[in-house]
């Protein structure tokens, strides 16, 4: 492997990492913190992508269009939470069937309203060239966006009063309520954040994908579920580790053999990881931290 090829693998890794992390964060917040298995997660991403693309077609500059995508998905998420999802708290498996139904409805409604596809928005920034190779700059920068998203989440959930109340609600609803936390509102806000993150994913990938179709969201679903489980219950620790691990496996096997081998290797690695670490990466980190403290 020469230097240029090393750059190739690095960029491929960054792209995989970004994809896995961004596909996962929204789901991880909703599943990890609220216990809702959201099979309509892909369609939340779809809402973000369509809102971004359609408002860019209306002449809005891309960053503003992306903001519209995030806001639209957030509002959409809140409406859905108030009407349907809030009746499903504590009913992990029912939430799965209901959100599967929602996903069927959303895909087909999208098709009825906007047709079989909408025109693509072009990808900004062009490419980086090195030797005989080149790589899309936007795709590399997505890795930066993924890390930035995780940082913002970290600050939100650990450094703000809201974050502390939200985590208290999730850990022990009764106690939180007796301490004066409006838990109903906390659930709604957490779901809104999860929706906003899915919307952000849709917004960021809208210009990086061939023209959006009603099936846009399904491309994200598999990676998202696998990474959530490999990551484990703590979103902030688990998601980046899962993204890094699975992205590395996928990039390496793809580079060495083919994309097919890369995909299969990633899925098999996920199965093995779940078997070895039933609580995921964040469970591992937690137990390491505990034993470290004990030895001190």
């Amino acid at each position: 492997m020469n230097g240029y090829e090393l750059l190739n693998v690095t960029f491929q890794f960054l792209e995989s990492f970004a994809f896995i992390v961004l596909a996962t964060v929204g789901l991880a917040v909703i599943f990890g913190m609220m216990g809702i298995i959201n099979l309509a997660h892909g369609e939340f991403i779809l809402v973000g992508a369509y809102a971004t693309t359609l408002s860019a077609h209306q002449g809005l500059p891309l960053p503003v269009a992306m903001l519209v995508g995030v806001v639209a998905t957030t509002i959409f998420g809140i409406v859905l939470e108030r009407t349907i999802i809030r009746r499903l708290y504590g009913r992990l498996l029912d939430s799965m069937v209901a959100t599967f139904g929602i996903s069927l409805v959303l895909v087909q409604l999208t098709r009825i309203l906007f047709g079989n596809s909408i025109d693509q928005v072009s990808t900004p920034f062009g490419a980086i060239s090195y030797g005989s190779y080149s790589y899309s700059l936007y795709r590399v920068l997505l890795a930066g966006a993924a890390i930035a998203t995780l940082l913002v989440l970290y600050i939100l959930f650990t450094r703000t009063a809201f974050g502390i109340r939200a985590r208290a609600t999730i850990q022990d609803e009764e106690t939180a309520r007796s301490m004066g936390v409006d838990t109903d509102r906390m659930y709604m806000s957490t779901f809104a954040i999860g929706s906003a993150l899915a919307g952000l994913t849709g917004a960021l990938y809208a210009p990086a994908r061939a023209s959006p179709t009603p099936e846009f969201g399904s491309e994200f679903l598999v990676d998202a579920f696998v990474a959530v489980v490999v990551g484990g219950p703590s979103v902030l620790v688990g998601t980046p580790l899962a993204g890094g691990f699975l992205g590395l496996i996928e990039a390496f096997f793809t580079f060495q053999w083919t994309q097919f081998i890369g995909t299969v290797a990633m899925l098999v690695a996920a199965i093995v990881m779940i078997r070895l670490l039933p609580d995921g990466f964040s469970g591992l980190v937690e137990s390491v931290r505990t034993s470290w403290r004990e030895s001190e």
Binding site: E5, Q12, S16, R139, E219, A251, T258, Q259, F260
Partner: peptide
């Protein structure tokens, strides 16, 4: 020659391989 799974959306490595062969 590369055969690509149906539904694949990520072509970074394919494009690099083509560039390598020119």
């Amino acid at each position: 020659e590369e055969f690509i799974l149906l539904g694949e959306t990520d072509f970074g490595s394919t494009i690099n391989a083509i560039q390598g062969e020119d």
